[in-house]
Simulated assay, not measured.
Amino acid sequence: MNNALLAIAALSVVCGIGSCLEHPQGRIVGGETVSAHFVPYQVSLRRRNGIRSAYAHSCGGAVLDERTIITAAHCVYNRLEQNFLVVAGSDVRTGMDGGIVTRVEKLVPHELYNASITDNDIALVFVSPPLPLGQRKIAAIELAEEVPAVGTVGSVSGWGLTKEDGFGSPQLQQVQIPLVDSTVCQAAYNWRPITEGMLCAAAPGGGKDACEGDAGGPLVVADKIVGIVSWGEGCARPEYPSVYASVPYFRAWIAEQRAKHA
């Protein structure tokens, strides 16, 4: 058995204070259980705090090709590659449940990532060995070319908290929420900028959202990834939309990094 598979024994630890709660954004509230069969691009980033620590779910991500995962910069910024594993094709937060585990070869957060305002919150994760696309509920997702119209409903998936200050879901969850205008989003967050590299989504009246542990996961419209779960105030609060890194805005950067690390 190879080293990556041996590491699976350490994957059955729930996300704790020292891992998932370091970045208080990213969350699925008001959603429903979904199989990876329907979201085959979804992955779990598992991270350990040191060589003697167990791997635990820390963030979500999405498969772009057999070697490339897209996620949020804050999930990997100032981290070491050897402390990550990627689990694909699994429905569960811990263990594998028939999925595939692979090691991280390279972490590439955006070079202009700004932690103080969570701007340019996008990263690529290059894995080895490659993921077996088309097998075990694993498939790549295409990048959206442009941001959909306001009101378009997108799907967000992940294993995050099911309510604010609650617990992470052991099973993969999905929720549908509509995109909102950036000016509405900026009015809600009047103390920090909503930049061109961000887009926002919110359910009318709240109650549906991404939550802690969903960070880095995909916002999908028409089978294309539109956004990456980034930040927000609380979880599913009606007055605060959730904020995503805008994938269309970063298409050129993504292409450049994929070519560089091919």
Rank of each mutant, 00 (worst) to 15 (best):
V220D: 09
H57Y: 01
A62G: 15
L85E: 03
L45W: 07
G60C: 10
L199S: 07
G213P: 14
C200D: 09
G99C: 04
P40V: 08
I177Q: 10
I141G: 09
L179G: 10
Q174Y: 01
A54R: 15
Y249F: 14
S44R: 15
V101S: 09
I117E: 09
I8A: 03
C59S: 05
A202S: 13
R93I: 03
G234F: 01
G31M: 05
P178D: 08
H74W: 00
S35N: 11
Q176T: 09
V76K: 03
V43M: 03
K137I: 05
D119C: 06
A9D: 14
R47V: 11
L64A: 08
N3L: 14
I177D: 11
M198W: 04
A202Y: 02
S155C: 06
I100T: 15
G160Q: 13
T102G: 11
E196H: 03
Y77H: 13
A215I: 03
S128M: 12
Y77I: 07
L64I: 13
S53I: 11
S12K: 15
L172I: 09
D121H: 06
H37G: 09
I100C: 06
P241V: 05
L199Q: 11
L45R: 13
S169I: 09
I138W: 00
T33H: 10
G206C: 12
A72P: 15
A139E: 13
L80P: 14
I225C: 01
V247L: 00
D181T: 01
L107N: 12
A149W: 02
I228K: 11
Y240S: 09
A252R: 15
Y249A: 10
G216T: 01
K208I: 05
V229E: 09
A203Y: 10
W253I: 13
V101I: 12
V221M: 00
A144R: 09
W253Q: 12
A262N: 14
N120R: 11
D214R: 01
G134H: 01
D65A: 10
S53L: 08
R47A: 06
L179H: 05
I141H: 08
D209K: 08
G216P: 10
K106E: 06
H110C: 02
Y244R: 13
I70V: 15
G26T: 13
G168D: 02
S58T: 14
D97A: 10
Q186H: 05
